[in-house]
Nucleic acid binder design. Sequence first.
DNA 1: CGAGGTGTTGAATCACGTCAATCTATGTGG
DNA 2: CCACATAGATTGACGTGATTCAACACCTCG
Lengths: 254, 254
Amino acid sequence: MTEIASEPQLGPAFASGPCSLHGRVEDFGCHECGARRTAICGILDDEQIVEMGRMMTQKWIEPGQFVVLEGDPGNHAYTVTEGVIKVFKSLVDGRVQITGFLLPGDFLGMPSRGQFMYSAEAVIRSRLCVFPRRPLQELFDSSPGLEKRLLEIVNDELTLAQDHMLLLGRRTADERVACFLLEFAGRFARAGWPVNPLTLPVGRGDIADYLGLSLETVSRSFSRLKKTGVLSLPNKRQVVILDKERLDELGGRA
Amino acid sequence: MTEIASEPQLGPAFASGPCSLHGRVEDFGCHECGARRTAICGILDDEQIVEMGRMMTQKWIEPGQFVVLEGDPGNHAYTVTEGVIKVFKSLVDGRVQITGFLLPGDFLGMPSRGQFMYSAEAVIRSRLCVFPRRPLQELFDSSPGLEKRLLEIVNDELTLAQDHMLLLGRRTADERVACFLLEFAGRFARAGWPVNPLTLPVGRGDIADYLGLSLETVSRSFSRLKKTGVLSLPNKRQVVILDKERLDELGGRA
DNA sequence: CGAGGTGTTGAATCACGTCAATCTATGTGG
DNA sequence: CCACATAGATTGACGTGATTCAACACCTCG
């Protein structure tokens, strides 16, 4: 369960570009994972990379298991190396809003006032690198360039969060689904994964919780996009984009 | 218009605590404005404070005027010293989502990849301190503690953004309005301003654009809260909180 | 007094949610 | 191999909360 086994469901990524939730570090100098080259790693010297490798441990987590719970003290930071993690907030009565999905290469671990203000849970079997806070913080303290980069990352996160607020507050169901597909197509493309057909890493329910809709509305929206020839759906988890122009139009990149 | 005149509509603030959009700096060492004491200023030495004062200029802007437009190069940073600024994103067809309101003491000025990814516009006559990017950046570079503080601020912003996503995606109209009132009551209290009655700094339309609702729905929600004895509304801009418990319940701090 | 900006209210409509039935794919055991 | 169970997705019928459109009330200002 915490073995360093194989059978990756969504392989290691070395994506560059914009972040998913809480900072795409692309690879956190996690040299045990075989992931080295990135914006952050470019800043660290070899010795520091080795140091990160030393403080780090790896673990596998099963679908439904939590990485962090809202309110947890931020004693660890994580990078995802395989799988999919959903980050979300919830209300007492069970309503949930997913604020982002973490894919391989993404970073999780900026607590606010010593606490995580959100929960994170594995969607599928996932592999994480775990860094204890204390030595990680020391590394950051000793490398101002790294701290600067982290600011940039969190700032990019904020930009994405603002985009998502616009989506949640003002877009229609079809537009939301189109945005979702474009977002994942973009992230997959940057990671070098196949984009057409696009293999959705999450089910309808999680898409709904991400887009602020009901599961049924998401399903209907998919059907509508299929009927109007924008998409085809070979199976539940795969999407072929037939009319990219129309999809962009719905996604309203503006 | 750019005079350092009087008639403040919402006076200088020295609030502490959580940030509004893009970093409450509480006071940016902007010593010309008479604002000195804050978390950030505690980090700067006297010489640096004087330096900030030297590079800074002040200006007044009128309601409806823009501070920044989406896409602007981030050549300046700003702190609000009087008034109210709305920060928002919009779609081509005119739909708008306000992502935050800036009150006195709040900071605006973290571009992403050299561009502001949002627009900011004065809601009422407002006073700003304007800092040219270059020397400000140099100041940050020379003070690692300051950079660290900035990271903390942006991270707090992100936490607020996630809360707002939950609101936009999953809360009912009444809950959204309750959250709005609680948020502003909190910010006002921290700034030392009267909270009961609470003087709303913005109109129904802007509240609607912040909460992802229509203007009419916001109005109806206010009426409903009034009819059920949660609030009384002496006039359009004032709110008396009668049943704080019920309001908290609606706001669902969880 | 009337004009214009802002907020409220009502009536009709609609997009989305809810509930429930059905379908499909996958897996299990006899 | 088939019967059966299970989980996820789809679809339909229906209900409802929020939007839209429109009328009206209120306040300030010329």
